[in-house]
Design a protein around this nucleic acid. Structure first.
Lengths: 73, 73
DNA sequence: GTGTGACTTCTAGTCCGTA
DNA sequence: ATACGGACTAGAAGTCACA
């Protein structure tokens, strides 16, 4: 794993909200991978809080799910 | 400089708001460096949008300035 | 369709000096 | 008190195979 240190509150907040929104929109990881331009496997790790994701990618995921970034925090 | 790619909208939004809030609270970069545990030189680059900061550190900066992370986006 | 570990490449993040 | 640059290390980005 790349994001070694255990899930932090910040990662978990973002990850859980992202997953909730994605599912609410009936999107699979593969769907979101396509709309965000990121790898589905990577997104899976982000949603579970195992990755310390940076702003640019947070933004892409927010866009990919049709929301403002601040609404995922 | 490490963060090569130019400032993205996501970086700029966060950076500008952080700088505004920090100054509104009369904090210097060194003050924020101390309350957040991050390097002041690095924070300077984040505020100007030159760095693609990760969530955990965004959280630390939000804490260091006494705000919720979502309010800096 | 999804979670995870492992791996390489690239940059986030530190530290120092200089202005 | 802030900015910028170089040089370095830790860790994020990005991908894959297997469950």
């Amino acid at each position: 794993m790349a994001g070694k240190s255990g899930p932090s509150p910040a990662r978990l907040t973002f990850g859980k909200k992202l997953r909730a929104v994605r599912r609410a929109k009936d999107m699979t990881l593969e769907d979101l991978a396509e709309t965000s331009g990121l790898n589905w496997s990577y997104i899976s790790q982000v949603e579970s809080g195992h990755r310390n994701i940076a702003v640019d990618n947070m933004w892409k995921l927010a866009q990919g799910v049709g929301m403002e970034l601040k609404d995922l925090l």
